[in-house]
Design a protein around this nucleic acid. Structure first.
Lengths: 214, 214
DNA sequence: GTCTATATATTGATAGAC
DNA sequence: GTCTATCAATATATAGAC
């Protein structure tokens, strides 16, 4: 059977199950690969420094073919950032233990470190490329970011109200906590002196001390 | 007198004191203006996104004239970063109170916030454009950054040795402290709910709690 | 769904006039 | 010290063949 016939003729999808797919067809898998390549390259070199050709080359397709998966470069960036923050919010909702405020604080600290260490590229982009967003996307991302900041803020407010925590200012305490925890991404490397669990434990203790938990 | 004569004829420098300078002559002041424009634009849009033409336009000269002040764009960036970190180290040496470890910790926290809030553009560049540096410049900047990290590390080590502080790991405590303090730059704005002194006070307290100062 | 070819704009850096 | 003109490279995005 000639390759040209394979490529040119439409066939019912089921015919390809378990078979080598014709090389021109990657329905459903190229999209995610474009996304992954963009995330990796944007994090490594910065949005402005990465060309659509670089992304295409990383995926293994031509530059023109990229535009079947995103209308433009800007949309590629803004979708990465929005999806990252929405996933972050959903993930916390799924693990929030509720109840005791000190327990929630510790759970938040451990969750934040774990989630962020698992996605260093997305985290870096979400913090560094805000300036590369057009106004509309920027506003949407800011809203999501503020919703996440409200999480530790709520925990601290409850903790102070319950007399379990002492902090000069709840809002500042939340910002300080997030900055401290996110900072782990700048130095942690797998295989280093301390593993993730040890790091989580140490930071959870510092988080407690920071807000006056005796 | 014709403008062409003013521009074309060399004159002793003293002749221009107190007079309007001929428009083509800015000896000694254009250099710093190039530097300032680059710092502002790199911080706002990112190194890769800023063109030499943009910098020149901001200064009010043509693109070609820029190359009298820097051999290339990369040198402009690396000099900004190195100078910033050297100034940071010198500034701490000038205010380090020495002696009591808890007093030094508080002094460091206040100093770090103050110094960084005064130079938001340089700080942002120093943290975000490491990836834009060529290997040689990168190594030099990393060395300076590590020297600064050694400051809080030394304070914590002394504090733990003196039994005044408790921290799970000295190195992690130093990194957490720096990240927490630098984070102020992401949200602080003059004229907001709290002024700089109030912010310094609150963060100094959180810093103490973080390392177990009772 | 991918390719090649291309339109149009912009980039960093240099040369030479004044 | 600044200007104008320019080179060679590269950018995003589109059009149309297969």
């Amino acid at each position: 059977m000639e390759a040209t016939r394979w490529l040119g003729i439409e066939r019912p999808f089921g015919l390809f199950l378990g078979m080598a797919r014709p090389s021109g067809s990657d329905a459903g898998v190229t999209g995610p690969r474009v996304r992954a390549a963009a995330e990796r390259l944007f994090a490594k070199f910065g949005y402005a420094a990465v060309s659509m050709r670089q992304i295409a080359a990383d995926v293994g397709i031509g530059a023109g073919a990229l535009y079947h998966y995103t209308p433009d470069k800007q949309t590629l960036l803004s979708r990465l950032m929005r999806d990252h923050l929405e996933e972050l919010l959903d993930a916390w909702d799924a693990v929030d233990p509720g109840g005791d405020t000190v327990a929630r604080l510790e759970a938040f600290a451990r969750f934040h470190i774990r989630f962020h260490l698992d996605r260093p590229d997305a985290v870096f982009i979400a913090y560094m490329e805000l300036r590369s967003l057009e106004p509309g996307s920027f506003a949407a991302v800011e809203t999501l970011r503020r919703r996440y900041e409200a999480v530790p803020e709520g925990i601290l407010r409850d903790g102070v109200a319950a007399g379990r925590m002492q902090v000069g200012d709840v809002k500042l305490g939340a910002m300080a906590l997030i900055a401290m925890l996110t900072g782990v991404n700048t130095w942690y490397r797998d295989g280093g002196r301390l593993d993730r669990t040890a790091v989580e434990e140490i930071y959870a203790n510092m988080a407690r001390g920071m807000v006056g938990v005796g």
